[in-house]
Nucleic acid binder design. Sequence first.
DNA 1: TCTGGGGTCCTAGGACCC
DNA 2: TCTGGGGTCCTAGGACCC
Length: 402
Amino acid sequence: MDAFYASVELLRYPQLKGLPMVIGGGRRKVDEALRNVPEGGTLADIPVAAFPLLKDYAGRGVITTATYAARQFGIGSAMGLMKAAKLCPQALILPVDFDEYRKYSRRFKQVITEIAPLMEDRGVDEVYIDFTDVPGGQREGGRVLARLIQKSILGATGLSCSIGVAPNKLLAKMASEFDKPNGISIVFESDLQTRIWPLPCRKVNGIGPKADEKLQGHGIRTIGELAAKDRDWLIAHFGKASGAWMHEVAWGRDQRPVVTESEPVSMSRETTFDRDLHAVRDRAELGAIFTRLCEQLAADLQRKGYVGKTIGIKLRYGDFKIATRDQTIEAFTADPKEIRRIAGQCLKRVPLERPLRLLGVRVGTLARAGEVPVEPAVRPTAAGRRAARPADESTARTASLF
DNA sequence: TCTGGGGTCCTAGGACCC
DNA sequence: TCTGGGGTCCTAGGACCC
């Protein structure tokens, strides 16, 4: 989907079309500015001047989506809001409204599955579709079907999307970026050398900043340069699995099927504080946030009908370093009190002297409530074994906080 | 310009079992 | 006297994606 969050917002506020706008940041300040709906009017009647400007936004956060008008100024996803404000102070800013995006997500995905039932979910704004057995799916290399899907989604939601059609998921994903927004791009196997090999390695789904940096360290910048490397050389430098995988993708090979169903592995809730908090000084505030996260997470689990038995916490310190702890318990649970109790024990095992930026709670090893696997014979858990051992010195002093 | 929230998968060491 | 081989589970961290 093209600039998905921003495009959904423009459906509500069509008066903002064409203006530089970003989605991100907390709710509070922005919400105040939006309490300007004229008497008897609708959201579309709010004057543009009533919307908050990026330059007036003071707070932590990143941009989740920028309109194409905002991108002209060099603003992009994941950019800090403060930096974006320097690039384009007059841009408008709207808070993230995930419930609304999820609504439109369900809608466009339903449109797709009615046309092509084999669809793989890749988050709120992205999917893979298997054209293979869809009637007419091969006409003009898939362009006819792609066009039908685009038109149907636009008709049902008012949203545009970009589609890449290729022999596999790897190439289709890259193809989808060739013509944005509202484009269709067909890539054949025979296009590998001309259209894929000139691209930077970073364009491969799965090669991130770290791998790219390492590749560049070896003088490898493009996918073609990667393809030129010996398979064994790649394995020697990137490990057996990664090296072999890199060799495959550089040659455009990918056998992964389109997966239409999957079960969640974990659920979590986390929050970044408005300011860094200290475990001792801000004890009450932290405790309240901690409890709330556990309650939200329990509610998520219960609403979706899951229970879990691995409970964990995540901290991000002021210096952005991350620490995680988890503990597997014997009985599956979705109970907020139990989650908080175990998560609290996890917190006691992590250093709490330094300023904290983020706190998160996670439940993993999920099972559908009501289909809980039979417990195997009890053996002492790792936690039980650990309990016999005293906490290390750094955590001992703060152990009673939670 | 200090950098969100919700996920998945992989690696690696240690405990434990057969 | 010194020391197997294979397997699973648990835990912590990290890369990556949307």
